[in-house]
């Protein structure tokens, strides 16, 4: 079986990101899942290798590069190029993340592959790797393949449910990588602090607030409901622009695409660009004072009402249900 190389992104503490398990899950249907990590020379990778084994890596390529963490993308690109040279894989999988996209783009140019991006599924059809995509906010389902070169596929975080069986002690191969290519310098870096809430892209429940919340202080109501439901916090672009919450919470065309079991839109009008990021949620609930707000066109349960009266009552009702 040919190798399916999986690029593993690491958090500031050196652990694999959540994408690792999804990518290795996706890789198992394509070939032998081989994880590639790029670390500083001399790093102790025992815990990392064990974690990747639990996530299903049959083998782990540990690429050592001096520039890791001090420049954008090129160490990982050089590591993957070296691993491709050695493994002759039939596909390379990466997360469709900020760093994953930089690495994928450069890699495709460097090794003469071609890109399939933002895949929500991957399958093999004979020799071909087939990627599924959800286009224009889920208005179209398309599939694509790569002809004439190595398929380099980025996978949408949260889209893959399959998980690979754990591997007891994956074989480890070490590479020392010569980093090439001009790169931008990372001058300083602050790790994202875990919020204690589920991650927006992969959460089962998302509670999102819009301009209707009125102020950063009042936006706390959105967070309260999210916490009561164990969900993530989302927002419209207007709420982000007004400074109610960080850009990372933006859902929509130019924000995150989510497809949770439950999406609750509070004080969001439902502009077409917002819907493009959430309309494939299984159940949509909307609360808005304006009965003609377009969000109601996609809501399974809509309330024409004020979020500041309806949500507190909802929180009370959920509370008494729980204590009953």
């Amino acid at each position: 079986m040919t190798a399916a190389l999986v690029h593993i992104e690491l958090t500031a503490d050196g652990a694999p990101t959540d994408a690792a398990a999804e990518l290795l899950g996706a890789a198992t249907v394509l070939g032998e899942p081989v994880a590639v990590i790029t670390v500083a020379p001399g790093s102790d990778t025992a815990a990392l290798v064990a974690a990747l084994g639990r996530a299903g890596a049959a083998r782990v390529v540990v690429a050592e590069a001096a520039e890791v963490g001090s420049v954008i993308a090129t160490p990982q690109v050089s590591a993957l190029a070296a691993a491709i040279d050695r493994e002759q894989p039939s596909v390379v999988l990466l997360a469709h993340s900020v760093d994953g996209r930089d690495v994928a783009g450069r890699l495709a140019v460097r090794v003469g592959g071609a890109l399939a991006w933002d895949a929500v599924g991957v399958t093999r059809d004979g020799d071909r790797v087939v990627a599924a995509h959800s286009v224009f906010g889920g208005a179209y389902a398309t599939t694509s393949t790569i002809e004439g070169g190595l398929p380099i596929v980025t996978v949408r975080p949260g889209a893959i449910d399959a998980r690979a069986a754990a591997v007891e002690a994956p074989a480890v191969e070490r590479l020392t990588v010569e980093v090439s290519g001009a790169a931008a310098t990372i001058e300083s870096s602050t790790p994202v602090r875990p919020s204690g809430r589920p991650e927006l892209r992969t959460a089962k429940v998302v509670v999102a607030g819009g301009r209707g919340l009125g102020s950063p202080e009042k936006f706390a109501l959105v967070e309260q409901l999210a916490d009561a439901l164990g969900g993530a916090v989302g927002a419209s672009r207007a709420a982000v622009d007004a400074g109610y919450i960080d850009h990372a919470a933006q859902v929509g065309q130019t924000g995150t695409t989510v497809a949770p079991d439950l999406y609750i839109a509070l004080g969001i009008s439902g502009a077409i660009q917002h819907k493009a990021g959430m309309q494939t949620a299984k159940t949509i609930v909307a609360i808005n004072t304006d009965a003609s707000a377009p969000i109601f066109e996609v809501a399974d349960f809509g309330v024409v009402g004020d979020v500041f009266t309806v949500v507190p009552q909802l929180l009370d009702a959920l509370q008494s249900r729980r204590s009953a």
């Binding site: 389902a141 599939t143 004439g148 349960f301 309806v310 009552q313 929180l315 009702a317």
Partner: peptide, 28 residues
């Protein structure tokens, strides 16, 4: 030489919302 090729493309049915309820004090 290497290129991405579209294999299939299907529109997905749009969503239809339910008639919203108007809050009469019991919507929560």
């Amino acid at each position: 030489r290497a290129a991405s090729v579209v294999l299939s493309c299907e529109p997905r049915p749009g969503r239809t919302g339910a008639e919203p309820i108007v809050d009469d004090g019991s919507a929560g």
